[in-house]
Simulated scan of single mutants.
Amino acid sequence: MRRIAIFGCGGAGKSHLARRLAVRLGFPATHLDDHYYDDGWNPAPADEFAATQRDLVGADRWIIDGNYASTLPIRLARADTVILLDLPAHTCLWGIARRRGRHRITLPFLWYVIRYRRTMRPRVEALIAEHAGHARYLRFTSHRQVNRFLAAR
């Protein structure tokens, strides 16, 4: 595992997993939200955001967490490991409630979380199949599975 792309619903624990893997593996974790939003929660222009990701995936070792399906192929093309956190909506909503104040939470975002498995997950899985056939694919459906994976590292 040298180039790891982590995807999943908001509140699933993508950033937490990325941080823990970074400590264990000794290379940097990048949280795409930090590159997409500025301090006022304004999104980056699409071309700048894509260029940033092209720069990030050019490194020999990386961990990148975040969905952003429009630029997912950039990360998938270079990833050797793809991790999908496919947790139930109630688990993700609990994760969001625990981090309140650190991220912007809106009603449309909560609706996105509730519908993620039905609407976004199939799109993410299709992109993984199309762009990351060369990569190791790990899909976790619980925090227990994630913790077992981390314990084995």
Rank of each mutant, 00 (worst) to 15 (best):
V23S: 11
V23T: 06
R24D: 05
R24K: 08
R24V: 04
L25T: 08
G26C: 01
F27H: 10
F27K: 09
P28H: 13
A29F: 02
T30N: 06
T30I: 12
L32F: 03
D33P: 09
D33E: 08
D34F: 11
Y36C: 14
Y37R: 10
D38Y: 00
D38Q: 08
G40R: 12
P43T: 06
P45T: 12
A46W: 07
A46I: 14
D47H: 01
D47T: 06
D47W: 11
F49P: 13
A50Y: 06
T52D: 11
T52Y: 08
Q53M: 01
Q53A: 04
R54F: 06
R54K: 02
D55S: 06
D55H: 10
L56C: 01
L56G: 07
V57T: 01
V57Q: 06
G58P: 10
D60Y: 13
W62P: 06
I63Q: 10
I63S: 12
D65C: 02
A69I: 05
A69S: 04
S70H: 14
S70E: 10
S70F: 15
T71A: 00
T71D: 05
L72K: 04
P73L: 08
P73W: 11
I74S: 01
I74L: 12
A77E: 09
A79T: 07
A79L: 00
D80G: 02
V82I: 04
L84E: 02
L84C: 01
L85A: 02
L85Q: 08
D86E: 03
L87V: 09
L87F: 10
P88R: 11
P88F: 04
A89V: 08
H90V: 10
H90R: 06
H90Y: 08
C92K: 04
C92R: 09
L93R: 08
L93M: 08
L93C: 01
W94E: 13
W94R: 09
I96A: 01
A97M: 00
A97V: 07
G101W: 14
R102V: 05
R104S: 14
I105N: 12
I105Q: 12
T106N: 13
L107N: 15
L107R: 15
L107W: 15
F109I: 03
F109L: 15
L110I: 12
W111I: 15
R117V: 06
R118Q: 13
M120R: 14
M120P: 05
R121M: 07
R121W: 04
P122E: 09
P122Q: 05
E125G: 00
A126G: 01
I128A: 04
I128T: 11
I128D: 02
I128P: 11
A129S: 12
E130T: 11
